[in-house]
Amino acid sequence: MFNALSRVRAMLRALSPRKPLTRAQAIAIALAACSPVLAVAAQAFAQTSPAVASAPAPTFASDRLSVVVTGAGPDVILIPGFASSRAVWTATAVRLSATHRVHQVQLAGFAGEPWTHGDGPFVQPVIDALAAYVQQAGLQSPAIIGHSMGGLSAIMLAQQYPDRVGRVMSVDSLPFYSALFGPQVTVEMARPFAAQAAASILTASAPDFLNSQTATAVGMARDPATRTAMVDWSLASDRQAMAAAIRDVMLTDVRPGLATMTVPVWAPYAADADGGAPAALADGLWSREYAALPGVRLIRVDGSRHFIMADQPKRFAEIVDEFLRQP
């Protein structure tokens, strides 16, 4: 298995041969692309969190996602990221269920959930299924909180179905994932690399796949137990689903629609001076990529890697509570 940072350097040189990769860029990009796939994650304490009584679940059938409902009160939908289980939100759901009705989404193909769609599109059908769920469940302006790919999905839902979304929190997620490779990158420029990433998922041997996921977990979370859970969920995911998802994520650019959005958006993002993305680099990247979105609230969370809810649970809980208190 080739070195992850070398792979990132090679990709960036191909996209912009006259601009050498700086150390800061290498660190930030390696966090997001240090394996052929995005990382998956869970909080270390997810399996030991106290149980919460399930609320009556709205009748909803979909081969794209399933939903578990707990608590009562204003509606909050929690969307996990790439190859993650809904259990990544366990601690958040347990806490919020005391005051809110919490809808924990599980995407098909991830973390053991069945996948029946081959190499077909992944992200847009999820958006349509989420919109159908909101409508069929009769939810009124629910708050949507999504992590990574889930954050991208939340923004897409708000852009395409603004009447079904109250507010959005996009956790450590950019409106164009491939902007990580440089400000000059377009969807067309990213296309061969998306194809390469998808192919790498499908063709990797079992040992290589395990090794890549294990290495990626180190860059995505600080806590060893969380890293273990990340790898377990990745190995339980359907590789065709993962390949379809990474291809879609790398080729989805929602920045053109930011300027006309009316749904409030918060975007917490991670910075970590100890092996993660430097604060100045993270600030510049998030400010640049969300510049067109009116009223966006950008919140840097220090001492965290990609999975903020696991690395900084107290700070993340404070941000979520403030987000939900807004009128």
Results as ranks from 00 to 15, higher is better:
276 G>T: 06
272 D>G: 06
264 P>R: 04
280 A>M: 01
247 R>Y: 15
258 L>F: 10
236 A>K: 15
261 M>K: 04
248 D>N: 11
278 P>V: 00
266 W>S: 14
254 V>A: 14
270 A>N: 13
255 R>G: 03
261 M>E: 08
256 P>I: 11
263 V>D: 08
272 D>M: 03
283 D>K: 04
284 G>E: 02
256 P>H: 09
266 W>L: 08
269 Y>L: 10
262 T>G: 14
250 M>G: 05
265 V>M: 14
258 L>K: 08
268 P>R: 12
248 D>S: 04
257 G>S: 12
281 L>A: 09
257 G>W: 07
274 D>E: 15
237 S>F: 06
284 G>P: 00
249 V>P: 01
245 A>M: 11
250 M>C: 07
262 T>R: 15
252 T>Y: 10
269 Y>I: 13
278 P>C: 01
260 T>R: 15
244 A>H: 08
248 D>T: 05
241 A>R: 02
273 A>P: 00
236 A>Y: 02
251 L>K: 04
259 A>I: 06
272 D>C: 14
255 R>N: 06
247 R>K: 13
274 D>H: 13
250 M>E: 08
259 A>L: 06
257 G>F: 03
272 D>H: 08
279 A>W: 00
259 A>W: 10
276 G>E: 08
269 Y>Q: 11
267 A>K: 11
254 V>K: 06
245 A>S: 14
244 A>R: 03
273 A>G: 14
251 L>Y: 05
258 L>D: 09
277 A>Q: 09
271 A>N: 10
240 Q>I: 01
260 T>L: 12
280 A>V: 02
237 S>C: 03
257 G>K: 06
274 D>P: 01
268 P>A: 12
239 R>K: 09
276 G>L: 04
260 T>C: 10
250 M>N: 08
236 A>G: 03
242 M>V: 10
272 D>Y: 08
253 D>W: 05
283 D>Y: 04
256 P>L: 11
278 P>S: 01
260 T>A: 15
243 A>I: 05
269 Y>H: 12
272 D>W: 09
271 A>K: 02
247 R>P: 00
272 D>T: 02
280 A>S: 02
245 A>K: 02
261 M>G: 10
260 T>E: 14
236 A>D: 12
238 D>Q: 02
259 A>M: 03
273 A>V: 02
248 D>K: 05
257 G>I: 00
263 V>F: 07
261 M>C: 10
282 A>P: 10
239 R>C: 03
284 G>K: 00
265 V>Q: 14
259 A>D: 11
256 P>W: 07
239 R>G: 01
250 M>Y: 06
277 A>G: 00
283 D>T: 00
269 Y>R: 08
260 T>W: 06
238 D>M: 02
279 A>I: 01
245 A>C: 15
282 A>N: 05
269 Y>G: 09
244 A>M: 07
272 D>A: 03
261 M>L: 15
263 V>Y: 09
255 R>I: 03
243 A>M: 07
249 V>Y: 12
245 A>W: 04
254 V>G: 08
242 M>C: 12
282 A>R: 08
252 T>M: 13
258 L>Q: 15
270 A>V: 09
265 V>Y: 14
242 M>W: 01
236 A>S: 12
275 G>Y: 08
282 A>V: 04
266 W>H: 11
280 A>W: 00
243 A>L: 06
236 A>R: 15
254 V>C: 13
266 W>C: 05
265 V>F: 13
265 V>P: 14
274 D>V: 05
247 R>H: 15
247 R>Q: 10
247 R>D: 09
265 V>R: 14
285 L>R: 07
250 M>L: 15
236 A>H: 05
